[in-house]
């Protein structure tokens, strides 16, 4: 059973007082819960939030399933979201994504690599066309101005960094 940490609970409670309606606190609380649950949300997470926020579970589930930022399946330690919309697409974003996936050992979009390090998603425009092709790792600042070589090196670096922990 998922439970927010004490800190997380405090955070959610304070979010609840921030907006005109409680429902407005759902996104921020889901983010927090997702972080505490290893990067994804499931029904346990939603049930728990529903209880602490006193909002019907169905309404939280609506939000969680509407936004793609909430992962409904487990993800690797590094969730790599590669932009494949127009500019990035033209600048080789899709090929980059395929090659990085291969390097990382992920067969399909959304899969977790065998070592638990990586999950890839193709995402729509992240608003950084001038630095195409680009990607975002988890919720970190963007990784931009990529090419094939930088992309593959990124996978190798991340793997090394991940193992180091």
């Amino acid at each position: 059973m998922f439970k927010l940490s004490e800190e997380g609970l405090k955070y959610v409670k304070s979010e609840l007082t921030r907006y005109e309606t409680k429902q407005s606190a759902i996104i921020r609380s889901l983010y927090r819960a997702q972080d505490e649950n290893g990067g994804w949300v499931n029904h346990d997470v939603i049930s728990h939030l529903s209880e602490v926020m006193e909002i019907p579970a169905a309404q939280i589930e609506e939000v969680a399933t509407f936004y793609t930022m909430f992962n409904q399946k487990p993800v690797g330690k590094y969730h790599i979201q590669v932009c494949c919309t127009l500019t990035c697409g033209m600048m080789g974003g899709r090929e980059l994504c395929d090659a990085m996936m291969k390097e990382a050992g992920c067969k399909e979009m959304g899969d977790v690599s065998a070592d638990g390090m990586f999950t890839f998603s193709k995402v729509e425009c992240l608003g950084s066309c001038d630095t195409a092709p680009m990607l975002q790792i988890n919720r970190d600042p963007y990784t931009e101005n990529l090419n094939m070589e930088k992309g593959l090196q990124l996978v190798r670096d991340l793997r090394a960094r991940g193992k180091g922990h």
Binding site: H43, I46, S47, S50, P56, A57, A58, Q59, E61, E62, T65, F66
Partner: peptide
């Protein structure tokens, strides 16, 4: 149907999950 459950019996079982052309009505879990 969603508004009915929210507003009349106030049980809120129903929701619309996912979005766009994949959106579907359902109950939590």
């Amino acid at each position: 149907c969603v508004r009915f459950c929210d507003e009349v019996p106030k049980t809120s079982e129903l929701g619309i999950f996912n979005r766009g052309d994949r959106a579907e009505v359902g109950t939590f879990d």
